[in-house]
């Protein structure tokens, strides 16, 4: 008798993989907007998997930052560039064949190493309050405070760089 959470895992994992496949290799449409929409669905399914792993804060951040901010940026740029050419071009069979073989080989390696991983056991609530957002905040602001601050500088650098890159007369 499988547990309810196990059923949820298979549902979310199946959705993530299906939508991920439709993101990169949609047999019906090669429009980037379609890919972006399926990427949003993939990301939301991954947020579901994070919930099953008791990473509640990360699930919220995943939806807010990825499905929200990042994907809006993607769609904005797609609309801005007005890409229609993609539909007309044919993919080269040779490229697709070689790429698929290479990816399948990598997948084989990943699967073998995943199967040899030590199973571990999910932490009970008593041992460590995994998933407790307050715990995560304590770890983040005690042990990881310096990387956190450096990250804010990185965001500032990225922001200035983007403004510079978006200037009309890029020198």
């Amino acid at each position: 008798m499988p547990q309810f959470t196990d059923l949820l895992f298979f549902a979310f994992a199946g959705m993530a993989l299906l939508f991920g496949f439709l993101t990169v290799a949609n047999p019906v449409s090669r429009n980037p907007v379609t890919s972006a929409m399926f990427l949003v669905l993939t990301i939301i399914s991954l947020a579901g998997l994070y919930l099953l792993l008791h990473a509640f804060f990360l699930a919220a951040v995943q939806v807010l930052v990825y499905a929200g901010a990042v994907m809006v940026l993607f769609l904005f740029v797609i609309m801005l560039l007005d890409i229609k050419e993609e539909e007309r071009r044919r993919l080269k069979t040779f490229t697709v064949g070689v790429g698929s073989v290479a990816v399948a080989a990598l997948l084989g390696i990943l699967t073998v190493s995943a199967l040899s991983a030590k199973p571990g056991s999910p932490a009970g609530q008593t041992r460590l309050a995994i998933g407790d957002t307050a715990e995560l905040g304590k770890v983040l602001f005690n042990h990881w405070l310096l990387p956190f601050e450096i990250l804010s500088v990185l965001l500032l650098v990225a922001m200035v760089g983007v403004i510079l890159l978006s200037k009309k007369d890029l020198k």
Binding site: F21, A25, T42, L91, T95, S100, A114
Partner: peptide
């Protein structure tokens, strides 16, 4: 699942 997703992403980059 993670490995499969990674392979899908790589497939997208390559193909």
């Amino acid at each position: 699942v993670s490995g499969l997703l990674f392979s899908l992403g790589l497939l997208g980059v390559v193909v």
